[in-house]
Design a protein around this nucleic acid. Sequence first.
DNA 1: AAAATACAAACTGTATACAGATCGTATCCA
DNA 2: TGGATACGATCTGTATACAGTTTGTATTTT
Lengths: 236, 236
Amino acid sequence: MTDPDPTPKTAACEDLRRSILLQEIAPGTPLDEAALCARYGMSRTPLREVMQQLAGEGYVVQRQKRGAQVSDMSHKTLRDFFLAAPMIYAAVLQLATANATAAQLRALKAAQQDFRDALDGGDVAERTLANDRFHRVTGDMADNLYLLPSFYRLLIDHARIGMTFFHSRSAERAETLAASARQHDAMIAAIEDRDPTAATQLAQAHWALSRHEIEQFVMPEGLDAPLGAAPRAAAL
Amino acid sequence: MTDPDPTPKTAACEDLRRSILLQEIAPGTPLDEAALCARYGMSRTPLREVMQQLAGEGYVVQRQKRGAQVSDMSHKTLRDFFLAAPMIYAAVLQLATANATAAQLRALKAAQQDFRDALDGGDVAERTLANDRFHRVTGDMADNLYLLPSFYRLLIDHARIGMTFFHSRSAERAETLAASARQHDAMIAAIEDRDPTAATQLAQAHWALSRHEIEQFVMPEGLDAPLGAAPRAAAL
DNA sequence: AAAATACAAACTGTATACAGATCGTATCCA
DNA sequence: TGGATACGATCTGTATACAGTTTGTATTTT
């Protein structure tokens, strides 16, 4: 409807984005040009242009004479993420309340429905993609040339963090996901009411939730069993 | 010292960036591949990769089957700019106070010295480039993977707006530039003192100054002479 | 046996040639 | 004279071939 563009380049682009978001290709993995050429049925020239584009969007990084690799996730990545995400996201949601069109609101509601559908019956990948799409629509709504580059880059690692940390522990995860869905509904309401204050607070709450969950994962509750004694110190 | 990379590709990249920042190539100008190939002495393949990179950074946009053109500046651009700039810039400066290294602080002071040198004796282009370099160093200091894409994109249009609006009127501009330089000094002090509150306030003040100047340009004081009468309304 | 070097295979970067699309111009028709 | 259409030149996108660099392995040397 919007993009009648079935070129192999866009297809390769979208497939690679999806694979990277879902960590089907792990962070840091080197990407072999020849293999991808064969996979997508194109020669090296257009494939290299795809790589350039993905590099610009933050999916991959290109090293001199050493090809492209999926952008990696370090502890610094996580730190940068939680420093920037609340602010960028609050700004995006606030602008969304000001600028959202009726069509975009319908798209957002549809994305939220997909997300809820993925919650009952979907696997981790489906939930991640649906969540990603929901947030991307809020970016479309904000429609700010300068904010969106950072926002979309955040969404890449938002998805990847979700896939990294929330693979197991599905029981505990269920309640968190339900809370996320409720926050999405509240966001929709805030946008519909054009209420920037509520939007800002929701953004903060949404990231506080993610942050809490990741802290639980990185620094879990201690085990009950006593640890083994440390080897005796050598001196003093 | 840091980048021993005298390839024709990086040279072309930097030259094009400079030309676009200084509006030597106006916004919206289509870029002819063949001409640029001749100019930089390379074939189309690497030149197209340069274009892809510049597109990722926001200097140019690429239209399907219609090549690249310098990214546009519309009224929406200005609006987006002044919505996003204060927030992004405040965040960058705040992170800079937390993360700046001694070497970066030296680089910032050097950039500020260049800016002051350009104020007495430099032309508009030199001032614009020196100002751009100063702000870029603050971005290096902030060192946040997610904030910087938006920040650098802002800086592109920050420079171009400066070149657009402040070409003439050099007498009035002088005082504003002096005020900018004083604000830069205050930013350096805030970073040196690691004072995030001062940094935030300075960012706000810095953009308020730019904004005021552009408002003056777009909506100047009325002339003393009476305007011609409007044609009589058709109905009522 | 460990380290260093030399060689070979694989990969990246660049140039060039070709196919397809777009845009301007000239011609034709009303 | 105005508009539409057809043709041609120009430009974009893709494939392929070649040169230079990197990397892994095997051999040699200490």
